[in-house]
Deep mutational scan, measured.
Amino acid sequence: YYKILGVDKNASEDEIKKAYRKRALMHHPDRHSGASAEVQKEEEKKFKEVGEAFTILSDPKKKTRYD
């Protein structure tokens, strides 16, 4: 999950949140509406992965379990 968000394992809550926003905007489906179906599908997959990574890393209990 750290790799997906592009943050270090010791990243602060704020750094995780900023990285999530950056990656979410980058891969958001609306940004790729004019792209081919294949690209849209890949970006949607990445967008979901970013969301999942943020869900785990932003919750202290889940993050501890993950680490």
Score class of each variant (00 low, 15 high):
Y1L: 13
Y2W: 01
K3I: 01
K3Y: 08
I4P: 08
I4S: 09
I4N: 07
I4E: 11
I4L: 08
I4D: 14
L5C: 02
L5R: 01
L5Q: 08
L5M: 09
G6Y: 00
G6S: 03
G6Q: 07
G6T: 03
G6C: 00
G6R: 01
G6W: 00
V7N: 01
V7H: 04
V7C: 06
V7S: 02
D8Q: 09
D8H: 10
D8V: 00
D8F: 01
D8E: 14
K9T: 14
K9G: 07
K9C: 09
K9N: 11
K9A: 11
N10D: 12
N10S: 09
A11K: 01
A11H: 01
A11N: 01
A11L: 06
S12R: 05
S12C: 07
S12L: 01
E13V: 15
E13M: 14
E13W: 11
E13K: 12
E13T: 13
E13A: 15
E13P: 15
D14H: 12
D14C: 09
D14L: 08
D14V: 09
D14F: 07
D14A: 14
D14T: 08
E15R: 00
E15D: 13
E15L: 00
E15M: 06
I16H: 06
I16F: 03
I16W: 00
I16Q: 06
I16G: 06
I16Y: 01
K17L: 13
K17Y: 11
K17T: 09
K17P: 02
K18E: 15
K18G: 09
K18V: 10
K18A: 15
K18M: 10
K18N: 14
A19E: 09
A19Q: 06
A19H: 04
A19M: 05
Y20F: 10
Y20V: 07
Y20P: 05
R21S: 13
R21Q: 15
R21M: 12
R21W: 13
K22A: 13
K22S: 14
R23G: 10
R23M: 14
R23I: 12
R23P: 04
R23Y: 03
A24Y: 14
A24E: 02
A24S: 14
L25M: 14
L25P: 04
L25T: 13
L25Q: 14
M26C: 07
M26Q: 14
M26S: 08
M26L: 11
M26K: 15
M26D: 14
M26V: 09
H28I: 04
H28E: 09
P29W: 02
P29N: 05
P29R: 04
P29C: 01
D30Y: 03
D30A: 12
D30S: 12
D30I: 10
R31H: 04
R31P: 02
H32C: 04
H32P: 03
H32K: 05
H32Y: 11
H32T: 07
H32V: 08
H32Q: 03
H32S: 05
S33K: 13
S33C: 04
S33I: 12
S33A: 15
S33G: 10
G34Q: 14
G34A: 13
G34W: 04
A35T: 08
A35M: 10
A35C: 06
A35N: 07
A35I: 02
A35Q: 11
S36E: 09
S36G: 11
S36I: 05
S36R: 02
A37V: 13
E38V: 08
E38K: 11
E38I: 06
E38H: 04
E38C: 09
E38W: 03
E38G: 06
V39W: 02
V39S: 08
V39K: 13
Q40H: 03
Q40L: 11
Q40E: 00
K41N: 07
K41W: 05
E42D: 07
E42P: 01
E42Y: 11
E42M: 13
E42V: 12
E43F: 00
E43I: 03
E43T: 06
E43V: 04
E43H: 15
E43W: 00
E44I: 08
E44M: 15
E44S: 12
E44T: 08
E44W: 11
E44P: 06
K45P: 01
K45T: 10
K45M: 12
K46M: 01
K46R: 10
K46F: 00
K46A: 11
K46P: 01
F47S: 07
F47H: 12
F47R: 04
F47K: 14
F47W: 07
F47P: 09
K48V: 10
K48N: 08
E49I: 02
E49S: 09
V50R: 03
V50F: 03
G51A: 15
G51P: 03
G51W: 13
G51R: 15
E52R: 10
E52M: 09
A53L: 01
A53M: 01
A53F: 00
A53K: 03
A53W: 00
F54Y: 15
F54W: 13
F54C: 08
T55I: 00
T55F: 01
T55D: 14
L57R: 05
L57T: 03
L57E: 08
L57W: 01
S58T: 14
S58C: 07
S58K: 10
S58Q: 05
D59P: 00
D59V: 00
D59F: 01
P60H: 09
P60K: 12
K61M: 10
K61G: 09
K61R: 06
K61I: 14
K62H: 08
K62L: 14
K63V: 03
K63C: 03
K63I: 05
K63F: 01
T64F: 14
T64P: 03
R65E: 15
R65P: 07
R65T: 15
Y66F: 09
Y66L: 12
Y66I: 10
D67A: 06
D67G: 06
D67C: 00
